[in-house]
Design a binder for these strands. Sequence first.
DNA 1: AGCAAGGATACCTGGCCGGTATCGACGGTC
DNA 2: GACCGTCGATACCGGCCAGGTATCCTTGCT
Lengths: 279, 279
Amino acid sequence: METRELRYFVAVAEELHFSRAAQRLGIAQPPLSRAISQLERRLGGPLLERNSRGVALTEAGRVLLAEARAAIDAVDAAERRTRRATGDGSEPGLVLVSKAGAASELLTKLLDAYAAEPGAVKVEVDLCGIGEQGPRLRDGRADVALLHRPFDVIDGLDTEELLTEGQVAVLPSSHPFATRSELRMADLEDVPGLPPMSWPGARAQAGAGPEIRDSTQLYQLVGLGRAFTILPESARAEQHHGVATVPVVDAPEVTTVIAWPPHSRSLALAALVRAATRL
Amino acid sequence: METRELRYFVAVAEELHFSRAAQRLGIAQPPLSRAISQLERRLGGPLLERNSRGVALTEAGRVLLAEARAAIDAVDAAERRTRRATGDGSEPGLVLVSKAGAASELLTKLLDAYAAEPGAVKVEVDLCGIGEQGPRLRDGRADVALLHRPFDVIDGLDTEELLTEGQVAVLPSSHPFATRSELRMADLEDVPGLPPMSWPGARAQAGAGPEIRDSTQLYQLVGLGRAFTILPESARAEQHHGVATVPVVDAPEVTTVIAWPPHSRSLALAALVRAATRL
DNA sequence: AGCAAGGATACCTGGCCGGTATCGACGGTC
DNA sequence: GACCGTCGATACCGGCCAGGTATCCTTGCT
């Protein structure tokens, strides 16, 4: 099977519409129809059900969709990482990705420690939205990531634990809870007049609160008295106007891990991970 | 990048010889040379160094080799799993792979428990050589595997723990140790007149002992008084002529885990894993 | 110098990809 | 129920590129 065929199939499976998929792919509809038919013939059965007025995936189609996405990511990763490794000098040697606004203290320590190693290469730090790190590692836009268990999905990645910490509630400083010396999860089940925030990607926790994408947004919302949330202790290092933090003594512990794709053979990556574990 | 190009590159990178690689691929040498040149042009730098009398990989080439192998495995997996999912009826719904001769008791319990579930599909059990499970999961020849931590590589796989157990020494029954009620790791550091076995794939432990590939071989060698080894307790369920087992009280614990590729969305697989964790 | 090995280049051919035109099946509408 | 719009399938054609053969060129060995 060729990459092209997989991309074609994914487009159709996502659009559930041949003409739209063809448009997205920048080709005409007939070649796309033909390519999918060939694929179905080669794989020994139908992938799509062409009902009148629409297209639906068969069971085999669902399998192929999941597998094809993973395969395309792997191919894209191969291309990106190789292009990065071709000695055109100016490019960074490693791309590290982390949630915007998280683990910044740990991150600076890590970068300093690695930079001091002999043979350290340039590290580009890429801050992305919550839950975006996994995909970036998988499709080669990044080589290594900082993640937070149990929040981030670490399926299919190699990891090393770096730091385990408790969590604190992040509240408007005007809120009655803000003066408490500690809180319990039970206190936060239903905070009067304050919705909890919900993260994109997390099991949709149906929290009626606003969705946020980065930490600036988060602190702004809290400062405005519109929401509260729970974050790892290290978030206290950042001071924000109108925002108070109170330890939540029985919150589940959060572990910051460094993660990388399992087949990586990069010496630079190995050195970075080694530096991280020695922190 | 197309799958074909990746396969071509891997062939050349493995053979380090264009003509032999072309032969292996079933094409002539000139198209292969051209394909590699195109790849190098597209990726922005050389992948191979053509020294006089031979070919060597550049750093970028090493990166691409590792990435390309993973990508090709993913594409092959997509094809195999989809072909298996196309409703041609006779085929098995899931392929489970396990080390030959290991965990047989757990395996039968698991298969029985799953078969009793509503909507259970046919499970093909595939017994393979030690260390072969990972590759089979990665390239789609299997959907799920039983592995043993810390011996098997579980990089890049999702896992659930099933069973943790101690280990026993497996010795010829004529050996002085065979009558002991227990042993310690220190006793086994250097057993007089008996070499330890070494497994393929494991970090080459330089044990001067014979290499073995399956459990029949193993018990035969032990029965002949040619070697000894350490195995999980459950191995005692199998009785073999001339072979004795003695608990090793301070051996590291072995955990049997069920493992599957992280992006799998198969309902049948999910049911099997659920059945396994309920054992 | 001659030769052999091995990768690169030149050039041709055929298959397949992608395009346009058109068909055919199905549904909604008046 | 005839008409029409939507959407995927089919027919056919043209151009590109993969793959083949022949040959060149560099290199190392004798």
